[in-house]
Simulated scan of single mutants.
Amino acid sequence: MFVDREAVTLIEDNKPKILSRLRRIEGQVRGVARMVEQDRYCIDILTQTQALRAALARIEAMLLRDHIDHCVRSAFSSGDVEDQGRKIDELVEVLQRTAR
């Protein structure tokens, strides 16, 4: 698969926010593991896993917005039809995976 090296660095503005959120999620996952080890009430564990899923969805939304704001916008402003097609294909693919 084609990797746009420019796109890899375009989330620099959001990188600290994303890393902070991921570290928070990492702590939440450890907390859920402790809950399982301690035989906590199933609904309490499910509530925490739902919170984890929501937190990951927020990170996905940030990354998707960055990709559209930077990579997709750049492809369309460049006039490069092949790059535009790749960006559209990437978006369709990732949205299809998300819908599963």
Rank of each mutant, 00 (worst) to 15 (best):
M1Y: 09
M1K: 08
F2A: 03
R5M: 15
R5H: 12
E6F: 01
V8R: 12
V8K: 13
T9E: 15
T9D: 15
I11L: 14
E12F: 05
D13H: 13
N14T: 10
N14L: 12
N14F: 04
K15W: 08
K15I: 00
K15L: 14
K15C: 02
K15N: 09
K17H: 09
K17Y: 09
K17D: 09
S20C: 06
S20E: 12
R21N: 14
L22P: 02
L22Q: 02
R24D: 15
I25F: 06
G27I: 13
V29M: 15
R30W: 04
R30L: 07
G31A: 11
G31E: 10
R34F: 07
R34Y: 06
M35S: 12
V36N: 00
V36K: 00
E37S: 05
R40I: 00
Y41R: 04
C42H: 14
C42R: 06
I43K: 08
I43Y: 02
D44H: 11
I45T: 05
L46F: 01
Q48G: 02
T49D: 06
A55C: 11
A55I: 13
L56S: 12
A57G: 11
A57T: 12
A57K: 09
R58V: 10
R58W: 02
E60Y: 06
A61T: 05
A61F: 06
M62T: 14
L63V: 07
L63Y: 02
L64T: 10
L64A: 08
R65P: 00
D66F: 02
D66C: 11
D66T: 08
D69P: 03
V72G: 03
V72K: 05
R73Q: 10
F76Q: 07
F76P: 07
S77L: 13
S78L: 05
G79F: 12
G79I: 11
D80Q: 05
D80M: 04
E82A: 15
D83K: 03
D83H: 02
D83T: 01
Q84R: 11
G85R: 07
G85H: 10
G85K: 10
R86A: 08
R86F: 08
K87D: 04
I88P: 10
D89L: 11
V94M: 14
Q96A: 15
Q96C: 10
R97C: 03
R97P: 00
T98G: 00
T98Q: 04
T98F: 11
A99L: 15
A99R: 14
R100E: 09
